[in-house]
Amino acid sequence: MNPNMKRLRRSMMFLNCQKPGLIKDPYVYAPDSIMLDLEDAVAEREKDAARYSLYHALQEIDYRGVERVVRINGLDTDLWIEDIRCSVAGGCDAIRIPKTETAEDVQKVEAAVIAAEKEFGAEEGRTLIMAALESAKGVMHAYEICQASPRLFGIALSGGDYTKDLQTTISGTGVELMGARQHMIIAARATGVQCFDTVYTNLNDMEGFRRDVETIHTMGFDGKSIINPRQIPIVHEIYTPKPKDIIFAEKVVREIDTKKAQGIGVFTVDGKMIDIAFYDGAKRTLALAKASGVYKGEL
């Protein structure tokens, strides 16, 4: 399995490939992933120029470990295959499929990615895939989409198009997104892939953004698509385990390991009842803390 399948993706920042100033050094903001956009942000007549910038950026710029995802144009255009060739030739880490509606959409992209990897001599399997669900149909097919390719690391909700399809609008309360969010996170967890939330577009309302991130964090999402570097510290703050959680998780893991060896199944840690069911959660907290750079212990 590609080791990047499960990497940390709390913040996935969209960047317009048409704007060199944006793509030259976004890593200074320390997002987990950048999503280099060839689709909606790029004017129709600038698609070639954007691909050119993208290819050279991927080739020339050291993104210092930040994952480089490319959002290609939709499968209903005649642009997407060339987008994939250009992205794979440049050496991107992953392709984001917009407006994914079926498992077949993922498989079509997978085939084009495999062909491009062969054509450009890239290591087979190095290019991962993620699918953006932007319609009611896509959301309904989330479970199949999640299982469509071994390269697919996750699914992402794209709230703008999705709410249009629902014949409503983004209200700011999250009510209109609740069903899709719930459905998608369940599908993702059922199939072992990651799940990402939609963008929050009102940059003047950082408190609203914070509430939105807290909501999706509580729901279980792995991260959020973002549109401005100012949003990154808030996402990371909410997703980074707090010191007391890290200490507790460490105790839980250690106690379970010890008690298991002693043949004890249920016991208490800091007054809370703990059994083996807590083990994976505690391990996950420590892994997230480690990946976030706030835990340097050996567990």
Partner: peptide, 8 residues
């Protein structure tokens, strides 16, 4: 400023 680079 709202420029994240300057804020950093």
């Amino acid at each position: 400023t709202t420029d994240q680079r300057k804020l950093m």
